[in-house]
C-alpha cells in the first residue's frame, strides 16, 4: 500500500485527502511515482471520467506508466521530470476552461508545486484535490541561502546549495511549495546530530 498516515502536526503543515471523481467538463491529473495508483483507483471508481482527462505523469523510476496508458484517457504525457513537464502544464492551465477539475497525487513536492501552478493560473482551490502516495520525502527550502533541496529523506540534512546542516521543520509555505530548513548547529558548530530517516 502506497498510502502513509502522517502523524498530527502543526497547522501550516498540509493535509491530503483521497481523490474522488467530480463532475467537470474536463479533468487534469498530475502525478508522480506511486501517485499513479491514486489515479488508477480514481479510474476504477468512475471510468467515465477518463475520456475527458489529461494525465501528466512523472514515473520517477516506477513502472506504472503502461497501466495509465491502458485507461484510454484523452491525453497522456509521461515525462522525465516535473521541471520538464512544466511548459506543458502551464500551457494546459493557461488554456483551461471553466469547469476544469484538478487532481494531484504522489509526493508532497509534486503536489505542492503543481498546486501552486494551478492557483497562479486562477484555478479555484475548491477545484483542486490532493492525495499523498509513495515517498514521504520533502521539498525543503534553506531559510539561509533560499536554495531548494528536493526529496529530503533525513533530518538533519545538508543543504544542496550552501552546505549548512539543516533541521527539517514541519513549517510549510504553499508559495514556496516547501518546508523550512534551519541550521541545526548554529549555536555549536560541528555538532549536527546523525541524520535520522523521516518518520522512522
Amino acid at each position: 500500500m502506497s498510502k502513509f498516515q502522517f502523524p498530527d502536526s502543526i497547522l501550516s503543515r498540509p493535509v491530503y485527502g483521497t481523490l474522488a471523481p467530480r463532475q467537470g467538463k474536463s479533468h487534469l491529473m498530475i502525478a508522480d511515482a506511486e501517485g499513479a495508483e491514486a489515479i488508477l483507483d480514481l479510474a476504477a471508481r468512475d471510468a467515465g471520467l477518463m475520456s475527458n482527462s489529461h494525465i501528466i505523469y512523472i514515473p520517477k523510476g516506477t513502472d506504472f506508466a503502461p497501466k495509465l496508458g491502458a485507461l484510454s484517457v484523452a491525453q497522456l504525457y509521461v515525462g522525465p521530470s516535473y521541471e520538464a513537464s512544466l511548459p506543458r502544464l502551464r500551457h494546459v492551465l493557461a488554456n483551461a476552461h471553466q469547469g476544469l477539475q484538478v487532481y494531484l497525487a504522489g509526493t508532497e513536492g509534486l503536489i505542492g508545486q503543481a498546486q501552486n501552478e494551478a492557483m497562479r493560473a486562477g484555478i479555484s482551490p475548491t477545484s483542486i484535490q490532493t492525495e499523498h502516495r509513495g515517498s514521504v520525502a520533502r521539498r525543503m527550502q534553506c531559510v539561509h541561502c533560499k536554495g531548494i533541496t528536493e526529496d529530503v529523506m533525513h533530518d538533519p540534512f545538508q543543504c544542496a546549495h550552501c552546505g549548512l546542516h539543516l533541521f527539517v521543520r514541519d513549517h510549510y509555505s504553499r508559495r514556496q511549495a516547501a518546508y523550512q530548513g534551519v541550521c541545526v548547529d548554529a549555536e555549536d558548530p560541528g555538532s549536527a546530530p546523525d541524520p535520522v530517516e523521516l518518520y522512522s
Binding site: 502543526i10 497547522l11 501550516s12 527550502q141 531559510v143 509555505s173 508559495r175 523550512q180
Partner: peptide, 22 residues
C-alpha cells in the same frame, strides 16, 4: 521568523510553530 517564507500565509499558518497557544 521569515517574511519571505511566511508571506501569503493565513493567521493560523504563520503562527503554526508557536507552542501551547493554539
Amino acid at each position: 521568523w521569515s517574511l519571505d517564507f511566511d508571506i501569503g500565509m493565513n493567521f493560523f499558518e504563520w503562527h503554526a510553530p508557536v507552542p501551547l497557544a493554539h
